[in-house]
Amino acid sequence: MTSPADLRQRHAELAAGPRPPRAREAAKLLATTEAALLASGALGDVTPLRPEWGALVGGFRALGRVMALTRNEHAVHERYGRFEDVSTGPGHILVLGPDIDLRMFPGRWAHAFALAGQRRSIQIFGADGEAVFKLYAGEETDRPAWARLVQEFAAMPDSAPPLAPVPAEPPAADGLVDAKALREDWLALKDTHDFFPLLRRHKASRRQAFRLAGEDLAMPLEPGAASALLEAASVSGTPIMCFVGNRGNIQIHTGPVAKLLRTGPWFNVLDPDFNLHLNEAGIAEAWRVVKPTEDGAVTSIELLDETGEVIALFFGARKPGQPELQAWREIVGDVAHRHALSPVVA
């Protein structure tokens, strides 16, 4: 079985190559988990942290400007700013503010580490060794406060992260769903937050619901709709909301997007406070989705991978009680018309 010492040696050999891989890719090449690679010390001096999740995240408020990173297999969401309002509730930690906006689910967290060095970070992982959330120090971060936080939560871990990758759970097979009842309940929605309970109530996956609801509510689009949407928002200056998450955290950017760059399969937003890296090759399905609310219809473009998992969600910037931006609705309408998979009558 691979040992921490063996991981350190094999990683050093990788790092000495002409193109040293990032930690996530290095873990794959070494047939281990990113959490185990970090815990081994292969990436630098590392301190295990106590899994007192609410207190730890609450401590981020003292750090000043940081970079919050949440990713899944096909999208990376990086947001710069300060932690402000942090609250905990049954099964969740809620972070609200103009900079950092998170919906965290600590029941899916298992391990946390602080990595020292030039690029200090605090990294949180699930029981499978997959990264859930990472926090990076920057030039404006309060370094003494960072050191105090790490010292306060430093502890011997209760358990080590898995050395071998945990096989991904296969997607659940679609069950029988009453399409008529699903559509009726969808049309009766009062809030976008009621959509997940609707799926759970009908025992439908997101992809299955999209396919059954009717094209007025969920229209299939070409994968290129995502970059077209971002390009249109950049040109017009229309503020958006971009959600990227995994099973342990969802991270949200609200605001405009400006600097866009395509590098191979990756479509990137490279703004001072927000970076998005979207692997278009991983987009199996894109959908224009309409959800009724008490404030009027709310329109989104939603990206799914080949297993039906969400890659990213895009909405127009809005708050509860406010109608959707007309500029956003026009952008989505135009993108849906140009990138529809089914014929659209002009």
Score class of each variant (00 low, 15 high):
22 R>M: 11
218 A>C: 07
277 H>I: 09
257 V>C: 09
140 E>M: 12
154 A>L: 10
78 E>F: 05
31 A>M: 08
305 D>M: 04
117 G>A: 10
294 E>D: 15
130 E>N: 13
161 P>M: 03
11 H>V: 02
249 N>P: 01
224 G>T: 12
39 A>M: 03
2 T>V: 15
198 L>G: 02
21 P>H: 09
127 A>M: 05
146 W>Q: 01
340 A>H: 06
136 Y>Q: 05
192 T>A: 03
60 F>G: 00
235 V>A: 15
264 G>M: 12
205 S>F: 04
117 G>H: 05
49 L>I: 06
68 A>G: 13
136 Y>T: 07
274 F>G: 00
280 E>V: 06
54 G>D: 11
94 L>Y: 09
23 A>N: 12
197 P>S: 09
305 D>C: 12
143 R>T: 14
131 A>D: 01
220 P>S: 06
287 W>M: 03
163 L>Y: 13
167 P>E: 07
27 A>L: 01
344 V>T: 10
14 L>E: 06
326 Q>W: 05
303 L>T: 06
285 E>Q: 14
236 S>W: 06
162 P>L: 06
51 P>C: 12
170 P>M: 03
271 D>C: 05
310 V>D: 00
203 K>D: 11
60 F>M: 08
301 I>H: 01
142 D>G: 11
47 T>L: 02
11 H>Q: 05
207 R>W: 08
32 T>A: 03
225 A>C: 11
22 R>H: 13
113 F>Q: 00
251 Q>W: 04
16 A>S: 14
118 Q>V: 14
154 A>T: 05
81 G>Y: 08
302 E>T: 08
163 L>I: 13
11 H>W: 12
103 R>E: 09
285 E>N: 09
194 D>R: 14
180 K>L: 12
336 A>L: 06
286 A>L: 04
140 E>N: 14
98 P>Y: 08
322 Q>R: 11
20 P>E: 07
290 V>D: 02
131 A>G: 13
20 P>C: 07
293 T>Y: 10
114 A>L: 04
88 T>H: 04
306 E>T: 12
180 K>F: 10
210 F>I: 05
221 L>A: 09
54 G>C: 07
66 V>N: 01
346 A>L: 14
176 L>H: 13
253 H>C: 02
25 E>L: 13
74 H>W: 13
333 G>Y: 06
231 E>G: 13
172 A>Q: 12
223 P>E: 05
100 I>S: 03
34 E>P: 09
190 K>N: 13
66 V>L: 11
124 I>N: 01
132 V>C: 10
295 D>I: 07
300 S>H: 07
204 A>P: 04
147 A>P: 00
41 G>D: 01
70 T>P: 02
107 G>N: 09
21 P>D: 02
239 P>C: 02
134 K>Q: 15
231 E>A: 14
233 A>G: 04
32 T>E: 02
74 H>K: 01
69 L>R: 10
146 W>F: 13
236 S>T: 15
47 T>Y: 02
206 R>Y: 06
335 V>F: 11
58 G>M: 01
153 F>T: 03
127 A>L: 12
136 Y>N: 07
204 A>E: 01
67 M>H: 11
118 Q>G: 15
164 A>W: 10
139 E>T: 15
102 L>W: 02
268 N>L: 09
101 D>G: 05
294 E>V: 15
139 E>H: 15
311 I>D: 02
151 Q>M: 03
310 V>S: 12
